[in-house]
């Protein structure tokens, strides 16, 4: 019985987050505009069409833009609702259901952002990628890892008075291992290597994702209680 009700809670909470996002579309619009501006700044400051940008630089710029957009998108996951409302949730649902629903919802949001951002970036900076399928898997795994790390960090930052620079200094060092593996995987996709040469990276990414998800799952109840 208990597990069934947790699943129900998760589904309800994800639906609630989606409905909230849909009603206040300015939040996602602002992140999209943020990404658009960042891509355009890259375009202006580099000043050449992407075909002549070396793949490493292309990839580095893309992941930096995506990293900051994801931090911005996830940061608000615990601040869009006020303290009283959070207290109300506390009496209604289990903390595990809440963190899982937030991670699922944020994964969905960040992967949506990453695909839109990718389309924008390719449109303006050119497309050096030879293995599209691999790059798509890379984006999905990356989005999930970003959201499971940033969700817990944003919960911590929301307790510390929503200090956005605190959010950045806590999340950037913690995301670096994931980012390094992602960049290697992305490099393989850009170079058009066969799938088999990226299995190691995929396994590492999956393992890191499971580690981050499990840590958030275990630690969040303690945070929630305070």
């Amino acid at each position: 019985m208990a597990t069934i009700s947790v699943f129900k809670e998760i589904i309800l909470l994800v639906k609630k987050d989606l409905a909230l996002e849909w009603r206040q579309r300015f939040a996602i619009q602002s992140v999209l505009l943020y990404m658009g501006c960042a891509v355009f700044v890259c375009y202006l400051s580099i000043g050449i069409k992407g075909s002549r940008l070396i793949p490493n630089t292309w990839s580095a710029l893309f992941w930096i833009i995506l990293l900051f957009a994801a931090i911005n998108a996830v940061t608000k996951s615990f601040l869009q609702e006020d303290k009283q409302r959070n207290l109300y949730y506390y009496t209604l649902v289990s903390p595990q259901a809440l963190i899982i629903s937030k991670i699922i919802y944020n994964s969905f949001l960040v992967s949506l952002l990453s695909f839109i951002g990718f389309a924008l970036y390719v449109g303006i900076m050119g497309n050096p990628i030879q293995e599209m399928g691999q790059f798509a898997v890379c984006l999905l795994l990356g989005s999930f890892g970003f959201s499971s790390t940033f969700t817990l960090i944003s919960a911590i930052a929301s307790k510390a008075g929503n200090n956005s620079s605190l959010m950045a200094i806590m999340s950037i060092p913690l995301i670096i291992p994931l980012l390094l593996v992602l960049m290697k995987f992305a490099k393989n996709a850009i170079d058009g290597l066969p799938w088999i040469s990226s299995y190691d990276e995929m396994i590492q990414l999956a393992a890191l994702n499971i580690l981050l998800g499990a840590l958030s799952y275990i630690l969040f109840p303690f945070l929630w209680r305070s």
Partner: peptide
């Protein structure tokens, strides 16, 4: 730095502990 941003002793200890436990496995892996 995170610990420095709290004034309440209990809150600082609890949230610092949570961040510490989140960070340690990642530190070992990197």
């Amino acid at each position: 730095i995170l610990r420095g941003s709290f004034t309440d002793e209990q809150q600082r200890a609890r949230i610092g502990a949570i961040f510490n436990l989140f960070a340690f496995p990642i530190f070992i892996s990197i």
